[in-house]
Nucleic acid binder design. Structure first.
Lengths: 247, 247
DNA sequence: AACCTATAGTTCTCTATATAATTTCAGTAT
DNA sequence: ATACTGAAATTATATAGAGAACTATAGGTT
């Protein structure tokens, strides 16, 4: 069983990806695909290290990442097990709307309602660490899943050279930023509940006063330079967030 | 500057706490207390290792925990820095309402509206991995901060020997569970937006139809045994959640 | 059958070391 | 003053190894 499964694991120093990342990814694929089920024991660290001819500490590092993602749990003296309920990772990793929806097998799309360079309003400037009035790209988009509106995104982006046409073509703002060499690294989100006003209700095709999840996010690149400040209004009936917490 | 600060760091093998945990905690205290400000460089890993006479890998492990908590960021070749905006940790660590509020310098209290052992309803039983009808403690509490109602908690707890009097005395369900030797380890939360019905509105002193953040949480102990399934309704105007995401 | 002990297996903590990749700084040449 | 090179400094990856702490199992004794 487990022995046959672990024969599928392949890691190589030639790949250019750190060994622990390769292992983490392959183990994660096995878990997410359902090959290993919740509470099923994984091979021990020492066993994997021997089988793959790598150091135990390297295996341990890979496993540590899976623990952090809530996919496995480890018990001293007993072993390592697949965590119950494979997690949605919306609040575990920084992903774009497009990525998140595709990961759920849904077809995301967007209507760009506004795409223009504006002077940064005071609060946005403060969020992004700019002087008020610094030019930023103001981007308002209606986000759809399988053709149905689910969220309204109102973003201020520090990169002002992204065009309406590019957005329509590529779809994902994050993908466009990454094409430009911006390495997204970290974001901070604040989640609140609000009710829909008339304009938002119309766009999202819900009644005025319906509950919305409001998500405010500031995103930084790997040099901790701010990239984006966005407020998203999400239909609460079609879209919710999940997270694993640790003690 | 940094030299004087690091003279305050003390770790000892006698303490019984792993060295990396001791260091992580002390560094965290320095950051949270404001001794180190955002973007300020921390001592390098090698410097700390030399100063504390411990291995670089041990320092690195401590730092890794701080990175995971969003308190610092590391740049290859440059160093380690305090992350901007010290984070509220509500969605980073598993903490109780009581702990969270105290951490924010607020005075939490509760009114227990219901505290009785009941047969687990089907959905709760499914959440907790029980047979329907298994006895669970049903606990409904109005949570207050500085005397003002902010949330309504409706919990089903697997430990049925907790009394109304204990809750009133100690206040924190998690503290009571921990007194009983239950080591809380992990929780999964789902966040949604809803609107207040008449009963909830009255209890929370808001208008009917006002937005609420609904948080559904299942908590497990360190053996991954379910401890609690809870639904919290939180006033959106007084209480919101934050989280750091990583790419 | 119950209990105790020894052993094996597993994760946890820690050490020492090395190389790779990146950034920064100092020295030298133009 | 500027540009280039090499060294120093820093984090990132990886290794090998050891002992501690815990769990599970097997075997022996009562």
């Amino acid at each position: 069983m487990t022995e046959r499964i672990t024969k599928r694991l392949r890691i190589s120093k030639q790949v250019g990806t750190p060994l622990y990342r390769q292992l983490q990814q392959q183990l994660e694929d096995l878990i997410v695909s359902g090959t290993w089920r919740p509470r099923e024991p994984l091979p021990s660290e020492t066993e994997l290290a021997a089988r793959l001819d790598i150091s135990v500490m390297t295996v341990r590092q890979a496993m540590g990442l899976l623990v952090n993602r809530g996919l496995i749990y480890r018990e001293k003296g007993r072993g390592t097990f697949v965590a119950p309920r494979p997690l949605e990772r919306s609040l575990q990793r920084l992903g774009s709307f497009t990525e998140d929806m595709r990961a759920r097998g849904r077809e995301p799309s967007a209507q760009t309602l506004l795409c223009e360079v504006v002077p940064a309003p005071a609060q946005i400037a403060a969020d992004l660490g700019f002087c008020p009035g610094t030019p930023v790209l103001h981007l308002r988009r209606l986000r759809l899943v399988d053709g149905f509106p689910v969220a309204l995104h109102d973003a201020y982006v520090t990169r002002t050279d992204i065009t309406h046409a590019e957005l329509n073509s590529v779809g994902s703002l994050y993908a466009l930023l990454e094409q430009r060499g911006i390495e997204l690294d970290e974001a901070r989100e604040v989640l609140e509940a609000v009710v829909a006003d008339t304009t938002t209700a119309e766009l999202l095709r819900i009644r005025r006063g319906a509950p919305l999840l409001q998500v405010t996010r500031i995103t930084w690149d790997r040099h901790h330079v701010p990239v984006e400040s966005i407020t998203a209004l999400c239909r609460a009936d079609m879209y919710h967030y999940s997270v694993t917490l640790r003690r």
